[in-house]
Design a protein around this nucleic acid. Structure first.
Length: 784
DNA sequence: TTTGGTGACACAAAG
DNA sequence: TGTCACCAAA
């Protein structure tokens, strides 16, 4: 039905016409020409749109127009439309929006992520590039495992070359659209060892009839290149192409799109260079900058009216992002004229931070505001824990988005391995995964024997096992264990002929002892795992065959609890892109956490600017209120570390923010001493953030070099974070001197008593008994 | 040979 | 806090 080469005669239903609907208000700030471009233009179109300007709505409008008007006037069939989003969530949302706009569900168009669309396309032509159409899609876990095996066979010291690191290199190559052959040709990549392993890895994947995520796109490119006739089919089929979040496309995706768009050139991309936050996975902002030269005659439409946020929120975000260089630049404005300023709150530690957020949420709830309108957006996954604990204590329902994916859970991966092995008897990776789960006494040595044999005979691991159980090669105990398992699988496969696949899978999980393994497990989360297994099994029924089910699980499936209960959302900033909430909490704005230390260490100014864009994304998620928090102390890896507020806090415009002293701080433990942290003073405005006198000199050489090109040092800096090559962060402050001197006995709330070892401005180096030497700003120190 | 315990070590973001 | 490599015990 969804085959683009079998397009049925199509007539749009006459009762619904887009033209009858009132003009969408969000397109009002376009002039007639621009509006025409968005709605009807044929030819390349780039919509450069700031945060909250209704990018997605533009896409929806265009889609609705295509599906309604063009369907009639030009006999455009839905199957001739290709719409690409970055997440499955966005795809789903798009589907719903369009259905809503048209008043009827629309199906049959190619809507999805690059990965899911590529997988769909690839299954049709797998044989052309040496795969079978039921190839498995490996996740990163499998990839690393495979690489470890390869490195083992190649006798490479895993300490010198961690498999994960190699995986990263390969992934980046794939992001750039580089096959092993192309990597070899390019002089740019000098790393011979990695090239060699990449080649072997790709060969192994082919033997295993498997793809990794990157392959889905890469194989499409290879397919297009080697079989132009296939490409031509798709090129002529897709008359309209729409792409969301264009700023986050990587080179492979760019090539993929360009190939597809080559014939009709009706490509419409929507993006915002200020929201480019995926360069670490190969995204090229250059793609959006180059659009006009890639597609001559392209129209560019800018959307600058923001419909989402209050003016204060908008102004704070806009000001922050101006600290980046090389932007396309845009001036966002809004008609909204009321609203709170952005709150900036300093707290003592992570616990206080979570408590404060909890209190705010309770206060909002008591005003009758639903929890689903509130979100806590964190920089990194580990930050969610403290908030979860707090919200559990308070009994506030919440959900964590983008935690471990459903299919990445251990029990799901195990179950999937069983399913894979039933569907594909020669799946070596699946066999390896479950041969000893639950425990069957099959260990490393036995597996080693099997591997050896499978390599020598060039057959799959399960085949090797089948051969070896009839020989003397294995111990009788092993023979029995493995033989039993193989027999089981044979039986299950036969069962598939007579019963539904749901029944079969239930039987498999039961008879293999896998569910029993969790039932008897003492682990706390064992019941939850059993729940997940049940969910997995019930999902199988919705699919025609096991292959399509497996693909759905590894590419699409989300573990959303779909109860309608109002819940506070906790998620990472990356996951929050494209979403909006009335009330947004942005905790952890501390140097080293956000901006993340590694971003600065590894990518210098580029990394810092990406972090800043992330901050921009965070603030602009808020409709009514944004609350930024930073903690003076944070426990990381069981170690207390004092932290400085993020430089992004400094970069916010004073007139649009409200710094708030944490009243909960007093309750944290008595001793207020004037001038120390107990006073309002440092809360309102950290001492080093006051108007400093000079900032001309003592920026360290390293940081001066690093930030020279960013305009960083041109601004009035009071606090300079020194990004050192060894990854240690230090800071130097020159606007204030400390009231403490070397040798003073002092006390720190968490570290306890200590002695001042060195003084640098208001920065103290203190030796704490039993803790070690720490660098601390003096406002966090009490006199001993 | 497998297993389970131990200590060292690193600890981002996602499809 | 979780993972991984290594070692002692079964």
């Amino acid at each position: 039905m969804d085959d683009p080469f079998e397009i049925d005669e199509f007539a749009a239903s006459p009762e619904m016409r887009l033209g009858d609907a009132p003009a969408p208000a969000y397109l009002d700030n376009l002039n007639a020409e621009q509006r025409d471009a968005v709605e009807t233009l044929d030819g390349p179109l780039l919509v450069l749109a700031g945060a909250g300007t209704g990018k997605t709505r533009v896409l929806t409008t265009r889609l609705a127009h295509l599906l309604e008007t063009k369907a009639q006037t030009e006999r455009l069939h839905p199957q001739q439309i290709l719409a690409v989003t970055f997440t499955n969530r966005a795809a789903k949302e798009m589907q719903e929006r369009v259905a809503h706009a048209l008043g009827r569900p629309v199906e049959g168009w190619w809507l999805g992520t690059f990965h899911s669309l590529s997988a769909r396309l690839l299954r049709r032509h797998a044989e052309l590039i040496g795969l079978q159409s039921n190839f498995t899609i490996l996740d990163s876990d499998d990839q690393v495992r495979l690489l470890k095996q390869i490195m083992d066979a190649e006798q490479i010291d895993p300490k010198k070359w961690p498999a994960k690191q190699l995986m990263g290199i390969i992934q980046r190559w794939k992001d750039k659209g580089l096959t092993p052959e192309r990597v070899n040709e390019s002089v740019e990549f000098a790393n011979g060892g990695a090239k060699h392993l990449y080649r072997i890895y790709q060969e192994r994947l082919k033997v295993l009839n498997a793809c990794d995520f990157g392959d889905l796109l890469l194989h499409c490119l290879t397919l297009f290149q080697q079989h132009p006739e296939v490409l031509r089919q798709y090129q002529s089929t897709f008359r309209y192409i729409l792409v969301d979040e264009y700023q986050d496309t990587n080179v492979a995706q760019y090539l993929w799109l360009r190939a597809m768009a080559m014939v009709h050139r009706n490509i419409c991309c929507v993006g915002d260079d200020d929201q480019a936050i995926y360069s670490w996975r190969g995204a090229e902002v250059g793609n959006i900058l180059r659009f006009e030269s890639d597609f001559p005659g392209a129209k560019v439409v800018r959307l600058e009216q923001n419909y989402r946020s209050t003016p204060h929120i908008l102004a704070a975000a806009s000001k922050l992002i101006t600290f980046n260089d090389g932007r396309l630049g845009k001036q966002l404005w809004t008609e909204i004229d009321t609203g709170e300023k952005v709150f900036v709150k300093g707290v003592w530690d992570g616990e206080a931070e979570a408590r404060l957020v909890g209190e705010d949420i309770e206060a909002l709830q008591s005003r009758g505001i639903g929890a689903s309108q509130m979100a806590i957006l964190v920089r990194a996954g580990f930050q969610t824990r403290e908030f979860e604990e707090r919200l559990i204590t308070l009994g506030i329902p919440y959900r964590v988005v983008g935690g471990p994916r459903f299919y990445e859970r251990q029990e799901i991966r195990d179950a999937l391995a069983y399913i894979r092995l039933v569907a594909q008897p020669d799946d070596s990776l699946a066999f390896e995964r479950i041969v000893n789960v639950p425990k069957r006494g099959v260990g490393k040595a036995t597996l080693q024997t099997l591997h050896q044999y499978s390599r020598d005979q060039a057959i799959s691991l399960p085949s090797a096992a089948r051969d070896l159980i009839d020989t003397e090669e294995l111990k009788p105990k092993m023979r029995q264990a493995i033989g039993g398992l193989l027999g089981d699988f044979k039986r299950w496969r036969e069962m598939l002929a007579g019963s539904s696949h749901v029944e079969v899978i239930e039987t498999v999980l039961d008879e293999s002892g896998y569910t029993d393994m969790w039932r008897t497990s003492k682990e706390i989360d064992a019941p939850g795992r059993l729940e997940n297994l049940k969910e997995l099994v019930s999902a199988i029924g919705e699919f025609e065959n096991l292959t399509s089910f497996l693909e759905h699980v590894s590419l699409v499936m989300e573990n959303e609890q779909n109860d309608a209960q109002e819940k506070v959302t906790i998620m990472t900033l990356h996951a929050a892109k494209g979403l909006e909430f009335d009330y947004v909490f942005l905790p952890g704005w501390e140097e080293g956490v956000f901006p993340h230390q590694r971003a600065m260490d590894e990518s210098g100014v580029k990394g810092l600017e990406e972090e800043r864009r992330l901050a921009y994304v965070g603030i602009t998620r808020a409709r009514k209120r944004a609350t930024i928090l930073y903690a003076a102390n944070r426990r990381i890896y069981n170690q207390w570390q004092s932290a400085l507020p993020s430089r992004f806090v400094d970069e916010l415009p004073d007139e649009h923010i409200e710094r708030i002293s944490d009243t909960g701080l007093g309750g944290h433990g008595g001793n207020h001493s004037p001038g120390a942290w107990g006073s309002d003073d440092w809360m309102k405005m950290p001492s080093w953030a006051n108007e400093g006198s000079s900032n001309r000199n003592p920026v360290s050489g390293a940081s001066e070099r690093k930030f020279a090109s960013s305009g960083w040092q041109d601004r009035v800096r009071k606090n300079v974070i020194d990004v050192k090559p060894d990854g240690e962060t230090s800071y130097s402050t020159n606007s204030k001197s400390s009231k403490y001197k070397v040798g003073d006995a002092v006390r720190h709330r968490k570290f306890g008593p200590g002695t001042v070892r060195a003084v640098d401005g208001n920065k103290l180096e203190i030796h704490f008994e039993g803790v070690g030497t720490k660098k601390v700003v003096d406002s966090f120190i009490l006199p001993g």
